[in-house]
Measured scan of single mutants.
Amino acid sequence: NKEKKVFISLVGSRGLGCSISSGPIQKPGIFISHVKPGSLSAEVGLEIGDQIVEVNGVDFSNLDHKEAVNVLKSSRSLTISIVAAAGRE
Rank of each mutant, 00 (worst) to 15 (best):
G17A: 00
V6R: 05
K4R: 09
H34Q: 09
S33G: 05
D50P: 00
I30L: 06
G17N: 03
D59R: 14
S13G: 15
P24M: 09
I80V: 09
H34V: 05
L46S: 01
L16N: 00
K2G: 01
L78Y: 07
F31H: 04
G87Y: 12
G12S: 05
R88D: 13
A84S: 14
F31C: 00
I20R: 00
V35Q: 03
V6I: 11
G49C: 01
I52A: 00
I20A: 00
R88A: 14
I32Q: 00
K5N: 07
K2C: 08
A86E: 15
K36V: 14
S33T: 13
G15D: 13
L16H: 05
S21D: 09
H34A: 12
I82V: 15
Q51A: 03
G29Y: 04
S41N: 00
I30G: 03
D64G: 08
E54C: 10
G38C: 07
I82W: 10
L40I: 14
S81F: 04
D50T: 00
S81L: 07
A85E: 10
K5W: 04
E89P: 14
P24Y: 08
G15H: 10
R14S: 10
S22C: 13
V55T: 03
R76A: 10
E54R: 12
K5Q: 08
G45W: 00
G49H: 02
S21C: 13
S33L: 02
E89I: 09
N62M: 13
R76W: 04
N62V: 10
I80D: 03
V6G: 02
S33W: 02
C18M: 15
K4N: 06
L16E: 03
P24Q: 12
L40S: 08
D59C: 09
I80M: 15
S81D: 07
N62I: 08
K36S: 14
G15A: 10
I30V: 07
C18Q: 02
S21F: 08
S33R: 07
F31L: 02
R88Y: 11
S81Q: 09
R88I: 11
D50Q: 06
I48W: 04
S22L: 10
V35P: 01
S19A: 09
P28Q: 09
I30C: 07
K27N: 13
L78C: 04
G38L: 06
G87V: 11
H34I: 02
A86C: 15
A85I: 07
S19Y: 08
L40E: 07
V35D: 00
S41E: 04
V35I: 13
L78S: 04
E43Y: 05
C18I: 15
S39C: 00
G29A: 02
S75F: 15
V44F: 10
N62Q: 14
A85D: 10
R14Y: 05
A85F: 08
G29S: 02
K4M: 05
H34P: 01
R76P: 12
S39M: 01
V69D: 10
F7A: 05
K27C: 10
A84W: 03
V6Q: 05
K36I: 12
K27F: 10
K27I: 05
G29W: 00
A86W: 07
S39A: 03
R76D: 14
V55A: 08
G15E: 14
F60P: 04
S81G: 09
N62A: 09
I25K: 14
T79E: 15
S77K: 14
S77T: 15
K5A: 05
E43P: 01
F31Y: 13
E43D: 09
S13F: 05
G49D: 06
S39G: 08
G15I: 07
S77C: 11
K2I: 12
S33A: 09
F7M: 14
A86D: 12
K27E: 12
F31G: 01
G87F: 12
I30T: 06
K36R: 13
G23F: 04
R14C: 07
V11A: 10
S41G: 13
E54K: 14
L40C: 13
S22A: 10
E47D: 07
D59T: 08
E89F: 12
Q51R: 12
F7S: 15
A86V: 11
H34T: 08
D64N: 13
H34N: 13
I32G: 01
V35Y: 01
L40G: 05
S33K: 09
E3M: 14
R76L: 09
L78P: 04
I8T: 08
R14P: 07
C18G: 00
K4A: 03
F7G: 00
G15V: 08
I82D: 04
S41R: 00
L16F: 05
R88V: 13
I52M: 07
I30N: 05
E54A: 12
R88W: 09
V35K: 03
Q51I: 02
I48Y: 06
G45C: 04
L46Y: 00
S13K: 15
V55R: 02
L16G: 00
S77F: 09
E43K: 11
F31K: 01
V55F: 01
V6Y: 15
R14H: 10
K36P: 06
A85R: 12
H34C: 09
R76S: 12
V44W: 06
K66C: 09
T79R: 12
A42T: 05
S77I: 05
S13L: 06
N70D: 15
S19P: 02
H34D: 14
A42S: 10
I25C: 08
V6H: 15
I82H: 05
F60L: 06
S13A: 12
P24L: 07
S39T: 06
E43F: 04
G87I: 08
E43H: 07
G17H: 02
E54P: 00
T79A: 13
L40H: 12
D50S: 03
F60V: 06
I25T: 15
V55P: 03
